[in-house]
């Protein structure tokens, strides 16, 4: 009696599996229960697997992408595996499509792919980016990260969803020594891990709002630790507007002239750059007008920490003559700050 019961159970389980496996099941068949399930179900049809070229053993030739229009636009992280004529997209239903490459955005480090919508069965289900204020995120928010971790999903198998929280916001200035990020703006940090393959996937709130595009696992030079991060969706909107909606962007042309403060730092020869102590201040220079003096220790330019003479030059190179920046310095036991108008170096 018991044995028969087990057999029936087993058969039921098997039939359920075979019914599911290999078939592009329709979305309506599932009955999600929890909010996390609802969120995952809502976004999954818009997540695609991206396969590309790689001649290098260290580079994975797979990633994730997000459908952003019914006309076949797919957003993914731009990377070396995305190559002309060698990039394919696998949709939610398992269908494979050759992808054209649209111009990428070097500052964001993202690229749009385009597939032929007439070859798609049914309608593409784009996750059109939400309104900027809806795509806001906050520390401690619950999120789901969706992507093809380690290429675990093939054909119509669904990509992986991982649960986590928003760890915090990584301010541009406080993270600028992070490796492997083209993007220069604030990032969302999360503990939903960005395994290889997860990048190009999305970070979603539990109501299915798309708040970020997953990056690779980042190596923080600040702390020597690994971090999972995402580019906020709202920062992607200008790029998407231009290439999906055809709205031309006004790209401000910024001409950079090397900035000069008039500070001469106390630099020793040696293998390690010392802290940025002021040795001399050129008369009539911006630094002299601000009141910097010899033996002051410069600790910050705007929000950028300056822990050594090398970092002082690195950070200063990010600014241009004519810009006003906030300088923070230590004199004795006092910490002072003031605005400094960067100038061009006099000849």
């Amino acid at each position: 009696m018991r044995a028969l019961f087990v057999v029936v159970l087993l058969a039921a389980a098997l039939s359920a599996q075979t019914a599911d496996f290999g078939k592009a099941y329709s979305f309506a068949e599932r009955r999600p229960k929890t909010r996390v399930e609802v969120a995952i179900d809502r976004v999954l049809p818009s997540i695609v697997k991206v396969h590309g070229a790689s001649g290098l053993a260290t580079i994975n030739a797979y990633a994730t992408g997000i459908v952003v229009s019914t006309r076949g636009h797919i957003l993914t992280l731009d990377q070396i595996m995305i190559q002309k004529g060698r990039t394919r997209v696998v949709l939610y239903d398992g269908s494979v499509h050759d992808a054209l490459l649209l111009p990428g955005d070097a500052e964001l480090g993202v690229r749009l792919l385009k597939i032929d919508p007439s070859e798609v069965q049914g309608e593409l289900q784009p996750l059109w980016p939400p309104e900027p204020e809806r795509a806001a995120f906050r520390t401690g928010q619950f999120v789901v990260s969706v992507g093809n971790s380690f290429r675990l999903a093939e054909f119509s198998e669904k990509v992986s969803a991982t649960f986590g929280v928003v760890v915090g916001r990584a301010n541009t200035a406080l993270r600028y020594r992070m490796a492997d990020v083209d993007y220069d703006g604030d990032l969302i940090l999360t503990d939903a891990c960005n395994n290889p393959g997860q990048f190009g996937g999305g970070l979603f709130t539990l109501d299915g709002t798309w708040i970020g595009l997953n990056l690779r696992l980042l190596d923080s030079k600040e702390t020597n630790t690994m971090l999972s991060a995402a580019i906020p969706t709202r920062d992607l909107l200008p790029y998407l507007d231009e290439y999906v909606l055809g709205k031309r962007r006004q790209q401000p042309v910024v001409e950079k002239t090397p900035a000069w403060t008039g500070v001469v730092l106390f630099e020793q020869a040696g293998r390690q750059s010392p802290p940025a102590y002021v040795e001399r201040v050129r008369p009539d220079s911006p630094a002299a007008k601000l009141g910097l003096r010899p033996d002051d220790l410069i600790v910050r330019l705007d929000d950028y920490s300056v822990r050594s003479c090398v970092e002082f030059r690195d950070v200063l190179a990010r600014f241009s003559a004519g810009q006003t920046i906030k300088v923070t310095w230590k004199r004795g036991t006092r910490v002072l700050d003031g605005d400094l108008l960067l100038a061009e170096e006099p000849r």
Binding site: T139, V165, V167, G168, A170, N171, L174, L189, D303
Partner: peptide, 12 residues
Amino acid sequence: RTFAADEPTVHI
């Protein structure tokens, strides 16, 4: 509080 001056980070 290492990545943003105005906002802490959290791990649960």
